[in-house]
Simulated scan of single mutants.
Amino acid sequence: MESIISSQKKSINNKSKIMKTIITLLISLSVLLNLKAQDTITISDFEVLNNSNWKGTLMYKNYSDEKEVTLETTMKITLKSNKVINEIKFPKEPKANSKSSIKIRKNGTYFGNEKIISKEILADGFTKIITYYKGKDNNKKAKMYKTYLFNSNSFSITKLVEYLDSGEKIIRNKQTYKRI
């Protein structure tokens, strides 16, 4: 009698181990199927912009009254090694002129300090790159999203801000350019 009970216990333990293994495999498979491969960028994604000059506008929302302000601007883009370098000039506000260099980092998963969320080549030939980073906007903790949309003749960057305390999303600024 004891041997029958012992045999049944072993059988139950084996079935339990098999079920745990099957459940673990199913969960692992489900997680793997739901994971999206991390989009990455390379300097070649920006090749169409190399040694180019642009004319356009910068629209931003003023912090004090939330009104939109639009400024005329020009931009020059060059590529060097693993960096996108841009020089922005404001003809009516030369003190605001700037030059920046954004490095592609961490095997193409970061554009400067911005994490790459997605990269697409759209049917109309545009490249669309969306990035994300955390920081402060208007002295509030926020998530920032930037959408880079460009082809050989058109370039824009839209910065969307989502405040952590309210979930409110606003367009903080947008740069829109045409190649000259």
Rank of each mutant, 00 (worst) to 15 (best):
F150Q: 03
K17P: 00
K174E: 14
L160G: 00
K169T: 14
R172L: 13
T73Q: 06
T70G: 03
N82S: 09
I43N: 08
T158S: 14
I116K: 06
N151Q: 08
F90Q: 09
T74Q: 03
I157Q: 04
R179G: 00
L35D: 00
S118T: 11
T176G: 04
E2D: 11
D137I: 01
K55F: 02
T109K: 11
L29C: 14
S52C: 07
M59T: 13
N34M: 12
K103V: 02
S44D: 14
K143E: 15
G167M: 10
K67T: 14
T109D: 03
T109A: 11
A96C: 01
K143G: 10
S100L: 04
L26R: 05
F90I: 06
K61N: 04
S7F: 02
I12E: 05
T40G: 08
D137H: 11
L164M: 12
V161S: 10
I117Q: 13
S166P: 15
F111R: 04
K67H: 10
L164A: 09
I171F: 03
S98L: 06
F90D: 09
S98P: 08
L164Q: 11
T73W: 00
D65N: 15
F90M: 08
I130Y: 01
T109N: 04
I4C: 05
N107M: 06
G108A: 12
S64D: 10
D165M: 11
N51K: 12
E114F: 12
K141D: 15
S118G: 14
A142S: 15
K146Y: 05
T21G: 11
A96H: 05
M59A: 13
G112S: 10
Y145A: 06
T70S: 09
Y63D: 12
K134P: 09
M19E: 04
N14T: 06
L49I: 04
E114R: 13
Y163P: 09
T147I: 10
R105H: 03
L149G: 07
G125F: 02
K36S: 14
V31W: 05
M1E: 09
N62R: 08
K141N: 15
L58F: 13
T131P: 14
I4L: 14
T42M: 05
K95S: 12
Y133D: 01
Y60D: 10
L32C: 15
D45K: 02
L35E: 05
K83E: 06
S152C: 06
S7G: 13
K99Y: 01
K174F: 04
D45T: 03
V31K: 05
V161P: 10
M1K: 10
W54I: 06
F150A: 06
T42N: 11
Y177F: 15
I18C: 00
E87P: 02
F126Q: 09
S101E: 15
N50G: 03
T40D: 04
V69L: 10
M59D: 11
N107V: 04
F155E: 00
G108T: 07
E68M: 08
E2N: 13
K174D: 02
I85Q: 02
E47C: 00
A96E: 13
T21P: 00
R105P: 08
D39K: 05
Q175T: 07
M19R: 10
M19G: 00
